[in-house]
Simulated assay, not measured.
Amino acid sequence: MSEHFLICPACQAKNRISGERLQQAPKCGKCKESLLPPQPLTLDDPRLDRLLANETLPLVIDFWAPWCGPCQSMAPVFAAAAGEVNGRLRLAKLDTEAYQAAAARFGIRSIPTLIAFHHGKEIARQSGALSAGQLRQWLQALMG
């Protein structure tokens, strides 16, 4: 039986969840909010660091900016994908305009850029806007 550690999007508490429960809409043990909401998480610097340090579910972050046209066109595709891969991957967004230090830390040179992490380490990177089919294919490759 596999175990995963998930950070609650609402209260930031660390939760231990069995692999079987990931598909059963698990709730936070502290605040009772959903641990895996069907939409991408919105990250800031502290949340990003907490997820990378503690989560065991693979994390895919969309590094974007509000002024970026391709970012805006990919946003609904990314949001829809979050619901499709929920419980197997966690999808999140980080505004590179608001959090420039995080963008610099990960060497973001163009946006949108997707970076996949597992156990806090980068495992894949994709720059440029993707269509729904391209994004599904990329995420499927991450899930094996």
Rank of each mutant, 00 (worst) to 15 (best):
K121H: 08
Q23K: 07
R109F: 03
L51Y: 06
K121M: 13
Q137K: 10
F106R: 10
A25F: 04
A13H: 09
K32Y: 11
A116K: 04
D95L: 09
G107S: 09
K27N: 04
L130T: 14
L41K: 15
R16K: 11
R16F: 05
Q126H: 13
Q100I: 00
P76K: 07
A82F: 07
L51Q: 11
D49P: 01
L94I: 08
I111P: 15
M143V: 13
I111V: 15
A10M: 14
A116R: 01
I61H: 01
N86K: 13
Q72E: 04
I115E: 01
I123R: 08
R136K: 15
Y99H: 15
R125N: 08
L91K: 01
A116W: 02
G19S: 12
S127G: 06
R16Q: 08
L89N: 04
P40I: 07
L22W: 06
L89I: 09
A116F: 09
R47D: 13
I115Y: 04
P37E: 02
R16M: 03
F63M: 10
P9K: 12
M74T: 10
Q140C: 02
L89D: 10
G29K: 04
P9V: 02
P26W: 03
I111L: 15
E97C: 05
K30S: 10
K121T: 00
P66H: 03
N54E: 09
Q24N: 06
G120M: 05
L130E: 15
V60R: 02
Q100M: 05
K32V: 08
W138S: 07
V60Q: 00
D44E: 13
S131I: 02
N15G: 07
C68S: 10
N54Y: 02
G29L: 06
L51S: 06
A82P: 12
Q23N: 09
S2G: 06
F106G: 14
F117H: 03
A141G: 11
L43C: 03
L6I: 12
A82L: 07
Q140N: 15
R88S: 10
F117T: 00
Q24D: 10
M143H: 13
A103E: 03
T96P: 05
L91V: 03
H4T: 01
L135G: 05
I61R: 00
A98C: 04
K27G: 01
I123D: 07
C28Y: 12
P58F: 05
N54I: 00
A92Y: 01
E20F: 02
S73C: 11
C68D: 00
P26V: 03
D44A: 11
H119Q: 14
Q39C: 00
I115F: 02
E3I: 05
N86P: 05
P37G: 02
E122K: 04
S73P: 01
K27L: 14
L35I: 13
E55F: 00
C8T: 09
S2K: 06
P40Y: 05
Q39H: 08
L36G: 01
E20N: 05
L41A: 12
I115W: 00
L6N: 14
I61M: 03
L142D: 06
S2L: 04
V60W: 08
P26I: 04
I111W: 03
P76E: 01
A80H: 11
G19V: 07
I111R: 09
D49W: 02
K32P: 08
Q39D: 09
Q134S: 10
H118I: 00
G29N: 05
Q72H: 12
E97D: 14
E122P: 12
L52C: 06
Q24P: 00
F63E: 08
L6T: 12
C68Y: 05
N54Q: 09
P58L: 11
